[in-house]
């Protein structure tokens, strides 16, 4: 027990230190680096708290993609202006206020322990056998609370369309060199394989559409950073189709059940497993496309969403 106590204390102290670094370090570049380290540490903490799904997602999305996004945005970021004394004062006051709020919140938290479990008849484990998948988190995400996940895909779609509306993609960095090309050639198939494995695994072990989609998007990031290899050339219509695919499949599968007198998103027990896999496959492709486009900051072709008179121009 003592050993775990020391481990937990170290993890918490490190979390706070890295968070402080990414909030208060002097330059933006340092803050971004601290943030990525914070994300990776968070993944370890999730593993410690028996949340392996989150560990995978955090490493791929939280630290990986968000980190890449922030790093890519760094060169154009405005340097912070020098602070005046009055601002300093406000800063100290707000920090004091934050400390006070944190103390109150922690005091409230102590009243919550021990945490009560909800109604046992509504527990996920009680109905897991009817869910079609044996991994509890996947069961919650794609069956019990599938409506949340569906709307979450809509959130991601919304952000992607917003990004696409705003700007064409960032230019690819300079060609990174032959060594990077070789690395990419090895890395790329591995990433795609990993994505497939995570997708398949989701039914009975940690993994699923979000992790798989994020790993596929990581392949785009690697390709983009390498600079030498072209991204897969999709037309605008194909891209729109890929964006809509996940949500469309999810919604259609959910609506078809209505015709048989079932509820929205109610899968027949015998089919539940395969339907969930189908939905997850579509979702993985859409998520990968959306996260890639969000990272690229737009579409490599001009004239989103419909090609106009000018010929599509690739950047």
């Amino acid at each position: 027990m003592m050993l775990w106590w020391v481990v937990d204390l170290t993890l918490c102290a490190l979390m706070i230190a890295l968070a402080a670094g990414s909030l208060f370090a002097a330059t933006l570049r340092r803050r971004v680096i601290f943030f990525i380290a914070f994300g990776l540490l968070t993944a370890i903490v999730w593993a410690r708290l028996q949340a392996p799904d989150l560990a995978l997602a955090e490493a791929a999305i939280g630290a990986g993609l968000t980190g890449a996004l922030l790093l890519a945005a760094l060169p154009t970021a405005q340097p912070t202006e020098h602070k005046r004394d009055a601002d300093r004062l406000i800063e100290w006051v707000s920090l004091l206020l934050a400390a006070l709020l944190a103390v109150v919140l922690i005091a409230v938290l102590t009243t919550l322990l021990p945490v009560v479990d909800g109604d046992p008849s509504l527990a996920v484990t009680a109905r897991l056998s009817d869910a079609g998948v044996s991994h509890p988190v996947t069961a919650v995400l794609l069956n019990f609370r599938a409506w949340d996940t569906l709307l979450e895909l809509a959130v991601l779609l919304c952000a992607t369309i917003g990004v696409l509306n705003l700007a064409p993609a960032r230019k690819a960095p300079r060609h990174a060199g032959a060594l990077a090309d070789t690395l990419i050639r090895i890395l790329l198939p591995l990433l795609i394989l990993t994505a497939g494995y995570l997708l398949w695994n989701g039914a009975f072990a940690p993994g699923g559409a979000f992790q798989a989609g994020a790993v596929l998007a990581a392949a785009t990031v690697v390709l983009h950073l390498g600079g030498g290899v072209r991204l897969p050339p999709f037309s605008l219509a194909q891209l729109r189709g890929l964006l809509a695919l996940g949500l469309l499949l999810f919604l259609s599968v959910g609506l078809v059940q209505l015709a048989f007198g079932q509820a929205l998103l109610q899968y027949p027990l015998a089919w539940a497993g395969s339907l969930i896999l189908l939905i997850e496959t579509g979702a993985t492709l859409s998520i990968a496309t959306m996260l890639s486009l969000v990272y690229l900051g737009g579409h490599p072709l001009r004239d989103w969403p419909v090609a106009g008179d000018s010929r599509d121009r690739e950047i």
């Binding site: 993609l65 922030l70 995400l141 949340d148 996940t149 991601l156 992607t160 700007a167 990272y295």
Partner: peptide, 22 residues
């Protein structure tokens, strides 16, 4: 499951904010 949803929402929002900033 809730946190997984939250992580995805966070990256989506950050991406949109960065795009608007650009």
């Amino acid at each position: 499951a809730l946190v997984l949803t939250g992580i995805v929402v966070a990256v989506a929002a950050s991406g949109l904010a960065i795009a608007i900033g650009r």
